[in-house]
């Protein structure tokens, strides 16, 4: 019985760590999503802008003038990067989910077998 309990404790601990990892990954995913949203609205804004429009980039408290092509390139680069990051995190999330799921089934198995043996003991 002690062995089973110990194993169960270990499994539930690891399940909890997986849950923690999952929520951090999901948080990161959400943050990326909002960044992607913001960058794509900026890109849309640049798209309808005249080519000779004055664009300034904020660096610290200072506004520096920047070429439109340069700004567009920077935003596109960011979008590409965010896209890749989202794919990476997404994979991470599915990995963690799979691991957590397998741990969960193991826990359920152990619990149900323990229950069964208990019932048998009671019946005997």
């Amino acid at each position: 019985m002690g062995d089973v309990q110990k194993k169960l404790q270990e499994l539930s601990d690891s399940y909890q760590t997986f849950q923690g990892e999952l929520s951090t990954a999901v948080e990161a995913r959400q943050k990326l999503e909002s960044q992607q949203q913001e960058n794509s609205t900026v890109k849309k804004e640049f798209d309808i802008l005249e080519d000779d429009a004055n664009i300034y980039k904020q660096i610290g408290p200072v506004l520096l003038k920047q070429d439109k092509t340069e700004a567009v390139m920077a935003v596109n680069g960011r979008l590409e990067f965010i896209d890749k990051e989202i794919k990476r995190i997404e994979k991470q999330i599915t990995d963690i989910q799979n691991k957590a799921e397998s741990v969960k089934t193991e826990i359920i198995q152990i619990q149900s077998s323990a229950q069964q043996s208990q019932q048998q003991a009671v019946a005997a």
């Binding site: 960058n39 804004e45 802008l49 664009i55 904020q58 700004a71 935003v75």
Partner: peptide, 11 residues
């Protein structure tokens, strides 16, 4: 100057 987001301002 309008803040269009992500640190870019457009005149």
């Amino acid at each position: 100057l309008v803040d269009v987001g992500t640190g870019y301002f457009v005149e």
